[in-house]
Design a protein around this nucleic acid. Structure first.
Lengths: 223, 223
DNA sequence: GCACTCTTCAAGTGTATCCTTGAGGAGGCT
DNA sequence: AGCCTCCTCAAGGATACACTTGAAGAGTGC
């Protein structure tokens, strides 16, 4: 069976794709790009690495075919190669959450205690949006909001929330959302709002899951 | 932001899961286990590695939570921890097929030329099975057939097909299936059958996809 | 006890990984 | 053109990890 070599080579090929995700920093990059395209500088700041190192990891992702680039002037924008890549990233998180023992501890260490944090399901939010008795705030960075957001949501990046609080009507419930279940922005937003006596909850997951569910989205920066 | 360390640790955790898939031999193991549970000896033979090395890789998979074990007498059976793991494996293959450039060459080198090979979709096979004008043969090893197979199919492992050919009625089309789109068993079966003048095609993918689509299956060895 | 199966250990080999630094190239602005 | 910004690339160092094998050990059944 000399097929053995060919078979091994084929499966080594599949393993190459998995290797692209087999590094924490690259996983962070994929998580960021799942929100929409970003340029290198921006990504580097986001993951707390040098630009050179970020470029290095982006190259690793690109040579596995997982991300693609677009040039605009002096900037280079990276994005996930297709929705399939987002699906793969979601599958990795799902398996980790369900089967990887240490993950609960790691998540708890990063996310803190979520027991007090009430969540809203996508279904409920759709209904509430239709009824118009809720304000949805997108607490991600402006560039992610611009690349796509929940239709009818309002961009209030988490680091500006405290200052913009007074512009929010105080007789309506606020629902905050961000990148997904492992993102802390919405958590922080809800905690801040509740400390100020507001009625606030977070969306159970984030924008990529909303888009994946084919629910209404919009594109474009805040006016 | 000392959250940085906690965030990095969390994403390193996700990367751990990806690492389980980031080796060709482990990918082969996952592919085999996607068919159903198997014992160590069996898996080692299947992937052409020593038992010790196979045990080593199985341990790597187990400590990422991707596979679980069951003891039966002196044998230890491994299986995928849940359907989510199968989904992840499918997602890896989908991304590789769609975006990883070299994959086409690797697949061609292992699978050979598939141009002559006609395929049957799951939908069509369901209809034909209902009409009863087709024979479906499962050309995987007997242990995989026993762990689960398409309802109404017949187990004829590929290495016994030539001898059992005379037992197949020759006025009905034969559809062969095996592990999935990257498995050669069904290809070989179809080629053999057509050389003998039979009307034969292969199922577009394999048993795991059939089960995933919630189509009728059966469990148990051939009588 | 003995046979069978699987795990583990020690050991060797090889090589990949990750990040930093500094230079260099591509594109745009004045 | 000259300069600036942004990104890529090559080199290097520190580190370690990944993979495999052979032999010994441990669990189970007869």
């Amino acid at each position: 069976m000399s097929d053995r070599l060919a078979k091994d080579a084929l499966f080594d090929g599949f393993a190459e794709v998995a290797k692209a995700f087999a590094n924490g920093r690259r996983a962070e990059i994929v998580d960021v790009l799942a929100q929409g395209e970003r340029h290198v500088d921006d990504i580097a700041a986001e993951i707390g690495q040098s630009v050179a190192n970020t470029s290095f990891h982006l190259r690793a992702l690109a040579s596995a075919g997982v991300v693609v680039t677009r040039r605009e002037g002096t900037r280079v924008y990276y994005r996930l190669a297709s929705d399939r890549v987002g699906d793969l990233w979601a599958a990795v998180r799902a398996v980790a959450a369900e089967h990887f023992e240490r993950l609960d501890d790691l998540a708890a260490a990063y996310l803190g205690d979520r027991d007090q944090l009430e969540q809203v399901s996508r279904e409920e939010l759709v209904r509430r949006l239709a009824d118009g008795d809720v304000i949805v705030i997108d607490v991600r960075p402006p560039s992610e909001f611009a690349a796509g957001h929940i239709a009818g949501s309002r961009s209030i990046p988490i680091d500006r929330l405290a200052r913009q609080l007074r512009n929010l009507p105080d007789d309506v419930e606020v629902v905050a959302y961000c990148r997904g279940p492992y993102c802390v922005f919405a958590d922080e937003a809800v905690r801040l709002l509740r400390r100020r006596g507001r009625n606030a909850r977070r969306l159970e997951d984030g924008f990529p899951e909303w888009r994946e569910a084919a629910l209404p989205t919009e594109i474009g920066a805040a006016s």
